[in-house]
């Protein structure tokens, strides 16, 4: 009889642990919010949203001067990025929008504007 009671106390402790874990992981919460945003965007991505995300990627690069970032800025001439850096920027864009950009197209992306243009043509971007 008494033995039968014991598991309940363990169970209770386990559930308490679980609750703590849920509270202390904000990552899970933000992920859920991300999904919500994606669904509300519907079929296509809003252009302003794409622009902001591309510019945010550029801002994340140490080499880029934040003051020079703009849609029209050429990666090489205006932002001072070389060909290797440009490859990295395009790879970061790939990752952000979960797409794979073929090498041929990747070579053609030389400014944020061109990146936005390319992403708007890809309907598998999200």
């Amino acid at each position: 009889m008494f033995r039968a009671i014991r598991p309940t106390s363990t169970l209770y402790r386990a559930s308490a642990l679980y609750k703590n874990a849920a509270v202390s992981s904000p990552a899970r919460v933000s992920m859920a919010m991300n999904f919500a945003r994606m669904y509300s965007a519907g079929a296509g991505l809003a252009r302003s949203d794409v622009e902001k995300r591309v510019l945010d990627i550029l801002a994340g690069f140490n080499k880029v001067d934040a003051k020079k970032i703009s849609l029209k800025a050429n990666f090489n001439a205006d932002l001072g990025l070389d060909s290797l850096d440009t490859v990295e920027v395009v790879m970061a864009i790939e990752e952000e929008f979960s797409i794979e950009i073929p090498d041929k197209d990747a070579d053609e992306i030389k400014s944020a504007e061109q990146a936005v243009e390319y992403i708007s043509k890809r309907d598998d971007a999200h």
């Binding site: 290797l84 490859v87 790879m91 990752e95 090498d103 070579d107 030389k110 061109q114 243009e117």
Partner: peptide, 28 residues
């Protein structure tokens, strides 16, 4: 795209391709 494509030698392209492959591999 409106701007003219960059002219690169075969070797230069090979290097950039390798760079890209390395970063792809890093994703795993």
């Amino acid at each position: 795209m409106s701007t003219a494509p960059v002219r690169r030698s075969g070797l230069q392209r090979d290097i950039l391709d390798l760079y890209r492959k390395c970063f792809r591999a890093a994703r795993l």
